[in-house]
């Protein structure tokens, strides 16, 4: 998996299935198609670090903003190093896990997949 784009910036990507779901949740929150996906990391969870995910209208000055095929991704600068190369997917079906982070930096993950260690 590529961690850095040709211009040296960190890549974070979203699968088409996850984009569809994100658009669905953005519409539910009245954001129509003008939204960004905020992905972040905070301390805690079984393995020490937890993913956070939300849809928001605007980025903040503390964010790195990445555009993945028309979907904007907002990443807090402090969380950036933990997420390099991460792909956000969506796992559906009866036993699906919902949004899933495929993070090449994660050396360990907990059973539910929401927590990881680097």
């Amino acid at each position: 998996m590529t961690l850095y784009a040709e211009d040296g910036t960190i890549t974070i990507s979203i699968t088409d299935k996850a984009k569809d779901k994100l658009r669905f949740f953005a519409r539910k929150e009245g954001l129509e198609d003008s939204f960004g996906v905020r992905v972040g990391v905070k301390g805690g969870g079984c393995s020490g670090l937890l993913y956070t995910l939300s849809v928001e209208k605007d980025s903040s000055p503390e964010d790195k903003v990445v555009d993945d095929g028309g979907v904007k991704i907002f990443i807090d600068k402090k969380a950036y190093i933990y997420l390099a190369g991460t792909q956000l997917d969506f796992s559906d079906g009866l036993n699906g896990k919902g949004f899933v982070f495929e993070n090449p930096n994660a050396k360990k993950s907990c059973g539910c997949g929401n927590s990881f260690a680097v």
């Binding site: 905070k42 301390g43 805690g44 020490g48 670090l49 807090d76 402090k78 969380a79």
Partner: peptide, 8 residues
Amino acid sequence: IDKFTIVD
């Protein structure tokens, strides 16, 4: 605590 204070 400091180690796990990322955005908090």
